[in-house]
Nucleic acid binder design. Sequence first.
DNA 1: ATGGCATGAAGATCATGA
Length: 256
Amino acid sequence: MKIATWNVNSVRQRLPLVLDWLKRIEPDLLLLQEIKCETHQFPVEAFQDAGYTAFVAGQKSYNGVAILSRIPAELRTKKLPGLSDPEPPARYIEVAADGLVIGNLYLPNGNSGGPAGFENKLEFFSALADHAEVMLRDDTDFLLAGDYNVCPTDQDLAPGALPPTDALVRPESRAAFRRLLWCGLTDAVRAMHPTAPCYTFWDYQAGAWNRDMGLRIDHALLSPRIAERLLSADPDREERAMPQPSDHVPVLITLR
DNA sequence: ATGGCATGAAGATCATGA
């Protein structure tokens, strides 16, 4: 089983690239973040023609997440349980497929909106950990993948790529990510690559790609039984060198 | 430390991203 996550930075701008990637890689599911369109604007037909059903949680301008599946899947929710905002931005969508719950998340960056913006990031993390704990108690097999907007350790960013005050590396953000791991989840890429950087993002600015000033911020966390099935987990670096790329690359997980 | 790109919505810039 192949599951991938990709922050595409506008699905409409990236449509040819995403279709090309689907055709070459043939994942069973692709989790998209930052689709940057309303649900009705999502190019459902183009993906249908490629053999994928789309589950979409869109909104105007920003954010937006979607799951593409070429295997039978059913929508579970378009909201992360436990957020204080009754109408939160479109940052979470979850389906069930092949006996597995697949949660797709776009965690708030936390650098905008001042202290409240950062608190909002931590609240999302906390709600996500609560959700994971409920599923672990229910003995549900799951994968929670997407743009976590955190470099978990200093190994996960190029030296000097971010100031230490950045919300992606602040100790509170890293502690929130560790809480998820300590629920008993496995960071798939890190489990398969204990020492390599495995960046998933390079800024468009300042020649970040050419200087390899990357960040590892797109992650797939696996519940225990799913972790036992892990065969491979790799960022697809080559996608960053394509014409008009997203600033993130896909991360591909293969399960036995 | 900031924001040199990129995107969308608006509008003759701006907010956001990370």
